[in-house]
Design a protein around this nucleic acid. Structure first.
Length: 420
DNA sequence: GCCGCAA
DNA sequence: TTGCGGCAACGCTCC
DNA sequence: GGAGCG
């Protein structure tokens, strides 16, 4: 939060430094200041914007601003502003007194509600280790509707690598590559026969006899290397390479037919969760980045694909039977008008679904974002988060809504009896 | 984007 | 040397 | 049986 500013010495009308605050236990706390990162024009523009927000009341006790040898006392008296503007500030680390060190201003962030600005969890920047990877044509526009470039996509995957890799690393993948950008011709790749792939793991043919050698993307290097090869979407199996034939999750892909309102999709997701809850299964929610939502159920890997798929089909058929005005279980486009098709076919062997944090190769480049169930009513669309705005959202997010997903092991035994 | 193959 | 095609795969639905 | 689809 921008809580105040000092004028640039000798240059009236320009910002010299910004005084920053973060939310902590429901109130603002001083977080240091930033005095570089802008040019004269920007400094003047920010100064003009802040002038309208000045106030006499300090947002936190000036005494709490001790701590720093290089505090604002050096740069003249601070002018307080109402804390309603958010700045994105890059910095090396938090000092022992919880202030930013080597801060540099990046941009104003008007979209972030003030209440959501917290101290960002400390995460090591992956950037340094990745610098070795050469990105060709970084400025090439891959999505003409937004101007998103190849470098934007690379940077997106770089920034979500820590979040994404747990979803990706242990599962065979299908990669959707789009060398000619969104709207151009794209193709799937699941084997590495010819192309030598940067850091990807190629599993022995014995893992899945009679088929091509399976591939996993299990490091940040592999992730970025994939982006260099114009991989836009990462799709994963429902089982891991540890136990390929026994799925450890079920996915219900909620796919709205023509003419279905977003509210209808939200309600459908809630109904799916309710049914699963009645069967004794906890489920997690993510946006698909495209049109619909994904409901993901972790299960113990104790049954093979045929059993798990039959269960998911039964669950969807139950929904379609009891709520025929909302749901269809058939995949054809004809009977889907005005209804939500819950795609259970993703639960067969070798079937894949766009992974959490995968971007989508469609205009706008939405991403699949894990969310909490209590966020569902506030969701604006399945592509609310994109390659462009996901990083900011994640940096201000204070806890992982899928935290318990990883430790949940639930058997299908009871739910299967319950349903039949 | 890149490789292998044919022209 | 240049050009060009491949780069997944399955079940389901409808015709 | 085959095209189309996700």
């Amino acid at each position: 939060m921008i809580c105040g500013f000092a004028d640039r010495q000798g240059v009236p009308g320009e910002i010299g430094s910004l005084l920053l605050g973060v939310n902590e236990d429901g109130q603002l706390r001083y977080a240091g200041s930033v005095g570089t990162g802008w040019d004269s024009k920007t400094a003047a523009a920010i100064r003009a914007r802040l002038a309208k927000l000045t106030t006499d009341a300090a947002p936190f006790p000036p005494a709490s601003m001790g701590g720093s040898r290089w505090g604002p006392a050096r740069t003249g008296a601070p002018r307080w502003v109402k804390p309603c503007l958010v700045a994105e500030v890059e910095f090396a680390e938090w000092t022992p007194s919880n202030q930013v060190r080597q801060a540099s201003f990046k941009a104003l962030r008007s979209e972030t509600p003030a209440s959501e600005v917290h101290k960002e969890a400390v995460r090591v920047e992956a950037g340094a280790t990745l610098a070795a990877l050469k990105i060709t044509h970084p400025e090439r526009v891959i999505d003409p509707t937004t101007g998103i470039t190849k470098l934007d996509l690379v940077r997106y995957y770089e920034s979500v690598a820590d979040w994404m890799l747990p979803h990706l690393a242990v599962r065979p993948v299908a990669l959707l590559r789009a060398p000619d950008g969104i709207g151009g011709e794209a193709f799937f790749q699941k084997h590495a026969e010819t192309t030598k792939l940067p850091g990807w793991t190629e599993h022995p043919a014995s893992l899945w006899p009679g088929h091509g050698r399976l591939l996993t993307v299990d490091s940040a290097d592999a992730l970025i290397g994939a982006a260099q090869l114009n991989v836009v979407e990462f799709h994963t199996w429902n089982s891991t390479t540890v136990d390929l034939t026994h799925p450890d999750r079920i996915i219900f892909d909620l796919d709205p037919g023509e003419g279905v309102s977003w509210q209808h999709v939200q309600e459908a997701a809630l109904l799916v969760q309710t049914l699963l809850g009645e069967l004794g299964l906890a489920a997690w929610l993510k946006t698909s980045g495209g049109k619909g939502l994904h409901v993901v159920v972790p299960v113990a890997p104790e049954f093979d694909y045929d059993v798990v798929k039959a269960f998911s089909r039964a669950a969807v058929q139950h929904l379609a039977k009891t709520l025929p005005q909302r749901f269809v279980a058939k995949s054809g486009p004809s009977n889907r008008k005005g209804k939500v098709f819950v795609d259970y076919l993703r639960n067969g062997i070798a079937q894949t679904t766009a992974a959490a944090f995968s971007a989508r190769a469609r205009p706008g480049m939405g991403v699949s974002m894990p969310v909490a169930w209590d966020q569902l009513p506030q969701l604006k669309s399945a592509y609310q988060w994109t390659v462009r705005n996901a990083r900011e959202y994640l940096s201000f997010r204070t806890n992982d809504p899928w935290c318990d997903f990883w430790s949940t092991t639930q058997s299908l035994r009871g739910p299967m009896e319950h349903l039949s």
